[in-house]
Structures are given as C-alpha cells and as structure tokens.
Design a protein around this nucleic acid. Structure first.
Ligand SMILES: [Mn+2]
Ligand SMILES: [Mn+2]
Ligand SMILES: [Mn+2]
Ligand SMILES: [Mn+2]
Lengths: 217, 217
DNA sequence: ATAAATTGTTAGATTAGACTAACAAATTTT
DNA sequence: AAAATTTGTTAGTCTAATCTAACAATTTAT
C-alpha cells in the first residue's frame, strides 16, 4: 500500500494502456513511458512481487485487481488536482497536467479529501475525463467522437481524447471548451473535415484529425 | 538551477541550521537530517561541485550565496504552500507542514505564483515565520520570547519557534493562535511558568518550556 | 516451413543516495 | 603534554532505477 513515485507512474501507464488498447505488451509500455524494455521487464517483476501486476514471461501484461485499484487512486489524485487547479486556482486547462503529474504522488489523505470537498465531489476533470471514486473505480464514459456525427447534428462538447498542451491551446484559440454546443453545418466527404458553429463562432472549419479527438453527447 | 528532492532537503536543512546556530558542522547536519555523517560528507562534496556549498575538509559547512538563495526559494515554496493550505483549503495549521514538505519540491512557477497571488502576497506563514521573497531573501523577524516578558506585559502572539505537530495541538487545546493578545498576570519565580489571560481564557498556566517556544511583540 | 523481423529476457554496468567499518583529524579532558 | 573522546573522512557495500549488449522466444513474411 506504499509505492514509489516510479512504481506509481508504471501502474498509471499500465492502467491507461489496458483501458485504451486491451492487451498491453512490454514493448508498448516501454514506448509509452520512454523507458527501455529491460527496465520495464524488471519493474514488472517487482510489481508482480507486490501483487500489483500478474506477470508471466512472454505473456501480455495485466494489472491485478489490487494494481488496478491502486492505479485508479493515483488517477483520482491526478484528476482531482487538475480540477482544483483549474476551478479554484484559475490555472489554464492546458497547464494543469504537468503539475498534476507531480502532485498525484503526494502522500496525504487530507489534502485530496479537501480538494474533493471544496470542489463539491466532482465526477469529471477539466478535460472531461472521469475521476475514479474513493475505491479507485473509474466509470467509463460513453460519448461519441465528433467525427462520428453527421451534418445537422447538434451536440455538446463533453470530453477530449487528446489532452496534450498543444491540442488544448488549439482549442483555446478557437474558444472551444467543455460544455460548448456545437452545430454541424456540413461534413466534407473528401477529407472528413467539418464546418461547425457554436457560441459566437460561425462556420469554423475543423479537420477530421481534430474531430476525432473531441467527444460529444 | 535544477536540484533533486534530496539535494533540496539538504540545502533547506543547512539554511535553517545556519540561521539558528551560526556555524554548522557535518555532525549537526547529520543529526538534523537523521542521515549518517559519511552520507552527509558525500552530499556536501556534491553540492560543492554545484557551487551551492563552500566545502572544505574539517571546516564548518557554509552555503554559498547561490546556495542560500536556492534554499530560500524552497522555503518560500514551503511557506506559501502552508499558508495556502490553511487559508484557502482550511486545513489545520498542525497538519500542513508534512504536506508542504512534499509540495515544496514541485517544479512549477505558475503554481506558486498563483498561490502567492490568491493569498495577496503574504509575508508570513501560518506559524508566523517569514516567507522569503521571489529572490529567496528572508527577513529575520525581531520578536521576543514570551518567556522574556514580565508580569503586567500585554503582548501579541506573533510567531512560534517550535512548530511541531505536538506543540501546535497543545496550542489548539488552549485556543492559542497567531494574533491572540496575551496579558501576563504573574510569573512564577521558581520555575518561570506564567499565568496569562487572553481572549476568553482567564488564568491559563503556561510552563517556561512552552513560553520559550512562543514569540510575541 | 523457413527465414526474417520483432519482441522479450538475461546479464552486466552505471548513478544517486543511503549504509557500516576503519581510520584520521580535531577537540576536550585529565 | 598525553590520553580519551568526538568529529570527520575514506573505502567499500547495498538498493532502486536506469542503461547497453547479447541472446532467446514469438510473430510475421516469404
Ligand atoms: Mn492529466
Ligand atoms: Mn506522475
Ligand atoms: Mn513547515
Ligand atoms: Mn521536503
């Protein structure tokens, strides 16, 4: 129940890869963390000793229930922090991830309980991602991609797949943020780009690549 | 300009010992950090290479100006954090030190600038200790100890020498906090204990040991 | 079914930060 | 001044987390 910062980052990465890809290979985790494969193998054995990962040579990596719960709790701290930084400290949503990446490792129950309380027990972070509960359980959301919508649809921007600094700045420049109601005027059949309108902005053009990163309901 | 958490803790400890004791020995620093002397010697050499400590074999340890500035900046982050946790997050002053001990190592300018701004650029932390400025310079305060006051004095509780969890809980139990106006009714010559009154509490008895930990003006 | 490419493991080295044991210098006591 | 004590340094070991090089297993392509 007490892990190093390094172990925590491995758990978190594994959790996210499992969620997005299903089976996770040593190679994938290695690339994701930018850490060489032998180092990853060594850490998997260590986490296996701690019963956080079910490790078997040459088999896909799998978190144990315990490992998944612990990872969920770290992600909870990460997302509560991001929400706190945006809502209570007025830091831009494109700046909070790097700070949360560090604060998620702080050992303190009271700090995160206070954040939770002051935020009114939020269920999503500033990018629309779900905040795992106190047991580390994360609800998966069921939004669809903006790129899957059709001409005439009127939808609400609810979450993001890509939450990188660069993408968030791209959205800032176009006044796109969570909650914005988007009307799809036209979908260009050739490249899948969309002509959309939303609060104040008329006929904004969004590439297919961008529309694939945006989740709506 | 980029130090490990470990290096930062050494710098901070050195800073505090220099401030309180003047000359600092390897032995003192070793005891203070609860790290064996050979480890401390090794770290002093490392910090010497980084021009943060002026290290000479068998001589007292001395921070360089650079080292003192860097230490000041870490203490600044620590104390801004404590103030933020108490003022903005309503965490008890006896709980914030352990959290700040971790958050002081977070790498982020915006986080601490926001704290500073939201707090209205405070000059002291929740225990009355001065917050170093943006250059890492710390004003030393010129309060006197409650134990140095005499019968009939009316003073204001302004800072604490001991800021341990236990002492803070002791003060909590007696409703003693920063800003409280204390009237000294009587000083017992035998053991130096004081009979004092303050907002609501009449004839509270404080031992000499306790009075020595309280700074007033 | 082989061969080639990719993926994964093992072995051995490195760095940061800790330790103990042994020795040396400095300080204090006698 | 000599002896005893304390303080500080050096040398060598350990663990966590990283790496590279070499080899082995698995998967993919031919
Ligand atoms: Mn994030
Ligand atoms: Mn992290
Ligand atoms: Mn403190
Ligand atoms: Mn610290």
């Amino acid at each position: 129940m007490n892990h190093s910062l390094t172990e925590e980052n491995y758990l978190k990465a594994l959790f996210h890869l499992e969620k997005n890809m299903g089976e996770v290979s040593v190679n994938e985790l290695s690339k994701n963390l930018d850490i060489k494969m032998p180092t990853v193998t060594a850490m998997m054995k260590k986490l296996s000793d701690k019963k956080l990962v079910a490790y078997q040579k040459y088999k896909p990596l799998k978190l144990t229930d315990k490992g998944r719960r612990e990872a969920g709790l770290i992600i909870r701290k990460h997302r509560l922090t991001e929400m706190f930084l945006v809502e209570k400290m007025k830091i831009g949503w494109e700046e909070v991830h790097d700070i949360a990446e560090q604060i998620e490792h702080i050992k303190s129950t009271v700090l995160f309980e206070k954040m939770d309380e002051l935020l009114g027990f939020p269920s999503i972070d500033p990018h629309g991602s779900p905040i795992p509960d106190r047991k580390g359980i994360m609800n998966k959301y069921s939004y669809r991609k903006l790129s899957d919508c059709k001409s005439g649809d009127r939808v609400k921007l609810s979450a993001l797949i890509n939450t990188s600094n660069e993408f968030l700045k791209f959205l800032n420049a176009r006044f796109l943020k969570l909650g914005v109601k988007i009307s799809i005027n036209h979908v260009e059949p050739f490249d899948g780009s969309m002509n959309v309108s939303y609060s104040g902005r008329k006929n904004e053009l969004l590439s297919h690549l961008v529309c694939e990163q945006i989740l709506v309901e």
